[in-house]
């Protein structure tokens, strides 16, 4: 195989190999995208980031396509399990002439926890 033939799954950033971030970080970020603007609506997409992602095991267990089912059925369920709300997106706007244009999932909610 020629060396110019690139792999198609290269990570965005190489893991450091230590599995820790500056020694003591434990905060984990959970990003949930919901079906509509209600925090009770179904989770339709999700992502999880934290300091263990700097290690190989953490990175490969929290990457694109790693799970088929959401960690919580709704944001409310995540709050009930101890996650804290950091931010939620404003409802989308619909400018004249572009009412039918779609793009990113609009209902993004960011949560955090230091105990996971």
């Amino acid at each position: 195989m020629g060396t110019d033939v690139a792999t198609d799954g290269a990570p965005q950033a190489a893991p450091s190999g230590t599995g820790t971030a500056r020694g003591a970080g434990t905060e984990r970020i959970l990003v949930l995208w919901t079906a509509d603007a209600s925090l009770r609506s179904a989770v339709v997409s999700w992502a999880s980031y934290g300091p263990e992602d700097l290690g190989l095991e953490g990175l490969t267990s929290h990457q694109a396509g790693s799970t088929d089912e959401p960690p919580y059925p709704s944001v409310v369920a995540a709050l009930a399990d101890g996650w804290r709300l950091v931010q939620m997106a404003a409802p989308p706007s619909f400018p004249p002439g572009a009412e039918l244009r779609t793009g990113h999932l609009p209902y993004e909610v960011v949560l955090t926890s230091s105990a996971r």
Partner: peptide, 27 residues
Amino acid sequence: LVLPGSHLRRVSNRSLARHHSFRGQRL
């Protein structure tokens, strides 16, 4: 791995890279 039905969504390359998984993703 593809996300069926996402083809008309206007995004730009890795502007969606924050996501890890979606309901309905398909290998």
